[in-house]
């Protein structure tokens, strides 16, 4: 039995609401009382995943699944998908539009930041078929 399960929707191109889902996830984890470093790691990953959906993903959703020993985030979208996942995981590689880059997004650090902060990251995507990120965080792992 999970401690808690929540589903949030993310809207494409909504830069006004962007980040709200991650802030909500952060609030929930803080309230449960997880270690602040763990909460920060999850928050960073949630934000990067959320912004990817806002910028590239079409509409999408974030699932938060909390157990005493593990926190999972699953972020899925109906966007254009990733053509080359290995390339997308390289720091500095970005397909963001210039107007997003002007706002300070699209530095090509989203997926690398997630990889660095999650205990594990799985990326499922095909060109034209959307993207699904599964991010797992083991409570108490050294990171």
């Amino acid at each position: 039995m999970p401690l808690l399960e929540r589903r949030f929707t993310i809207k494409a191109n909504d830069f006004v609401k962007a980040g709200e889902v991650s802030i909500e996830v952060q609030g929930i984890l803080k309230k449960i009382g997880f270690d602040p470093t763990l909460v920060r790691r999850v928050s960073i990953c949630a934000y990067e995943a959320e912004m990817n959906v806002v910028m590239h993903g079409g509409d999408g959703e974030m699932m938060l699944h909390v157990e005493p020993e593990e926190i999972d985030l699953v972020c899925s979208d109906q966007g254009g998908g990733i053509e080359d996942i290995e390339l997308a995981l390289l720091p500095g590689y970005s397909t963001a539009r210039p107007e997003h880059q002007e706002m300070g997004f699209g530095a090509g650090m989203g997926l690398p930041n997630i990889k660095k902060n999650a205990s594990s990251l799985d990326v499922y995507s095909r060109k034209g078929e959307g993207t699904r990120l599964i991010m797992k965080f083991e409570v108490g792992d050294e990171h």
């Binding site: 830069f15 802030i23 960073i44 300070g104």
Partner: peptide, 21 residues
């Protein structure tokens, strides 16, 4: 944590980043 963040970005998303970071 607790950094003073110097930037030229002035749009709303800087607040989200600040809260999360």
């Amino acid at each position: 944590d607790g950094a003073l963040w110097l930037t030229i970005q002035s749009h709303k998303n800087i607040v989200g980043v600040s809260v999360l970071r």
